[in-house]
Simulated assay, not measured.
Amino acid sequence: MVEHVNNGSYTAINWNDIEDALDKATWEKLTQQFWLDTRIPISNDLRNWRGDLNDTERRVYNLVFGGLTTLDTLQSQDGMASLRRDAVNQKEEAVLNNIQFMESVHAKSYSSIFETLNEKSEIDATFEWADHDEFLQYKANKINDVYQNGTPLQKKVASVFLETFLFYSGFYTPLYYLGHNRMLNVAEIIKLILRDESVHGTYIGYKFQIGFNKLSEAEQEEMKTWMYDLLYDLYDNEEKFTHEIYDQIGWTEDVMTFLRYNANKALMNLGQEPLFPDNADQVNPVVMNGISTSTSNHDFFSGVGNGYLLGQVEAMDDDDYKD
């Protein structure tokens, strides 16, 4: 834990004295790719929403965004605060502050999508469902229990599992429609969130690996057993959640493949071996094409846009997961 007070003197953060170069690189990457949902013209998707999507498709869309809002709320209100208590230096704490704020931006972005596309009664119904759905609440409470009661390393595992695995049952839907040239501006927001989450998962996974490598062999085996047990538990619940959401639209098996692929990515961010046989070649190519390094909108007046290149803090790309 960072000690800010030393012999009665409050310690100012000194970015000229870097204990870990990845703290500085991650801070710079996250600030360079700063964005807000208000810059994306979501209303341009109303024609698709009203004319191209049927009632079932719109319901699935609302449910997945209700689930994502719940998980981003958890990450912004409890997750990063929990991890910040275990920060080993002031720069790491600052990076986690940045991540916490952007998780709040993500959660707020879903509300902007809801507000643009739905009537108030539909929004209220979606949030009522999210607050009481058995499988969504199970994974939120499971992760939060680790945040509140776990060790510093366990908290990092929970965070990476949340951001690199559990979010992706929700991300599948907008990426699928993006691949079919629908709901393009909503997909822009999702791609910006994906860009953030990729850096978050890589950074926190790296911090986990530092601590994990300091453990004895016996302690490492104990941690790995706990980690894989947690993943199995979350996967079992996520399968039920995916059936609940996607059976009505016939996408369940494709979504499960996508989830297994991202579960492997989460494990690799943590420096562990992948668990599932699924790789990028088995994921629906329409969805994989949506996970790219380019976006279509740009603010030419301010010079701050959401076109981007993935930074060096990205330890792995899709090719790393192919056989």
Score class of each variant (00 low, 15 high):
residue 169 S to G: 10
residue 88 V to H: 09
residue 211 G to Q: 08
residue 266 A to L: 04
residue 233 D to G: 08
residue 265 K to E: 10
residue 37 D to N: 11
residue 282 Q to N: 14
residue 40 I to C: 10
residue 287 V to I: 15
residue 169 S to M: 08
residue 293 T to Y: 13
residue 245 I to R: 08
residue 19 E to W: 04
residue 294 S to I: 06
residue 217 E to D: 15
residue 282 Q to A: 10
residue 177 Y to N: 07
residue 218 A to V: 14
residue 130 A to V: 06
residue 232 Y to G: 05
residue 190 I to M: 13
residue 137 Q to P: 01
residue 96 L to M: 15
residue 213 N to R: 13
residue 90 Q to G: 07
residue 91 K to Y: 05
residue 251 W to R: 10
residue 99 I to S: 00
residue 91 K to E: 15
residue 184 L to Y: 02
residue 17 D to V: 11
residue 74 L to E: 06
residue 266 A to H: 03
residue 77 Q to C: 08
residue 241 F to C: 01
residue 79 G to M: 07
residue 243 H to D: 13
residue 87 A to I: 00
residue 321 Y to W: 11
residue 105 V to C: 04
residue 51 G to T: 13
residue 79 G to A: 07
residue 64 V to E: 03
residue 155 K to Q: 11
residue 260 R to Y: 07
residue 281 D to P: 00
residue 53 L to V: 04
residue 184 L to I: 08
residue 128 E to K: 12
residue 32 Q to S: 11
residue 228 Y to N: 09
residue 225 T to R: 14
residue 206 Y to C: 01
residue 297 N to H: 11
residue 81 A to R: 08
residue 269 N to A: 14
residue 94 A to C: 03
residue 87 A to D: 01
residue 167 F to D: 03
residue 222 E to T: 14
residue 144 N to V: 06
residue 269 N to W: 10
residue 215 L to N: 12
residue 102 M to G: 00
residue 295 T to L: 02
residue 97 N to P: 01
